[in-house]
């Protein structure tokens, strides 16, 4: 049997008076790798932020591992958008990754050699070992994203929320990140990723959550990621490429 790691019921959220999300219902099973897909302004980032309590919910209930967010906190990992932090911060890549271990080390203790080694190992896994002692402002966008991923990895959470980890990264970084995501899934972890590139959805994710202010559909990619559903999500602003094929790759025209 599969364990339910996340249940969202009747969730709604707004910015000032504009409702961004309404009637959000879905349940996520352990070991799934979900792409959250939808047009600009569909509320993809807001969905993640509201689930994590970073943005206030107007209504609804979110439970993690059939329990509350408070109790499950240690099992939850969050990778914010790269642009949300200050990359001029005087700190090294290794220090950023070590930050992911603070929950385990305890807030008021110093990281031991063991923890430093763990952080280094995680950087190594992302192909960033050579950059461990670089100041983070000297890293490229893709490298910064890898450092972020390495920080999430050491946290050893059960469920991860990632906000556009593949946005604006180079092809090598994209491959490295996807390899790690698949590895996490193989290890039974649950991963939810805000994703913007419709072309790669089929290759990357086994589940898709189509979102436009509300959940259009959620489920296995094969069932959900159909031409009809995508058109419903994007409101018809689509240009279909390779139409002769039922599953033709869509691209967005906005």
């Amino acid at each position: 049997m599969t364990e339910q790691v996340l249940t969202v019921e009747n969730l709604a959220a707004a910015y000032r008076k504009n409702t961004v999300l309404h009637d959000i219902h879905f349940t996520v099973n352990a070991g799934s790798l979900t792409g959250i897909v939808g047009p600009n302004g569909a509320g993809k980032s807001t969905l993640i932020k509201t689930i994590l309590g970073l943005h206030p919910a107007l209504s609804g209930k979110v439970s993690f591992f059939q329990s509350t967010y408070e109790k499950a906190k240690r099992k939850i990992g969050y990778v914010p958008q790269r642009g949300s932090v200050d990359w001029d911060f005087p700190t090294t890549a290794l220090d950023v990754v070590t930050m992911g271990l603070y929950g385990q080390i305890g807030w008021f203790k110093w990281p031991s050699r063991f923890h430093k080694a763990k952080a280094y190992e995680s950087l190594e896994k992302m192909g960033m070992a050579d950059y461990a002692n670089r100041q983070i402002s000297q890293l490229s966008g893709g490298q910064q994203q890898r450092v972020f991923l390495a920080r999430a990895l050491v946290q050893n959470a059960e469920i991860y929320f990632m906000d556009e980890p593949l946005a604006g990264v180079d092809a090598a970084t994209e491959r490295a990140i996807m390899a790690i995501l698949k590895e996490l899934k193989a290890a039974g972890k649950t991963v939810m990723v805000v994703h913007h590139d419709l072309q790669t959805v089929r290759d990357y994710f086994d589940h898709v959550l189509l979102l436009n202010r509300t959940v259009i559909q959620y489920g296995k990619t094969d069932h959900v990621f159909t031409k009809e559903n995508i058109a419903r999500t994007y409101g018809g602003n689509m240009r279909w490429m390779g139409v002769e094929n039922q599953d033709g790759l869509p691209s967005i025209q906005q």
Binding site: T91, Y102, F108
Partner: peptide, 19 residues
């Protein structure tokens, strides 16, 4: 120092880890 460091670098993550 550690909580402040995380708070300053990344307020959202600081919140999600319960600071």
């Amino acid at each position: 120092q550690k909580p402040m460091y995380v708070l300053t670098f990344d307020e959202e993550t600081a919140f999600t880890v319960g600071l």
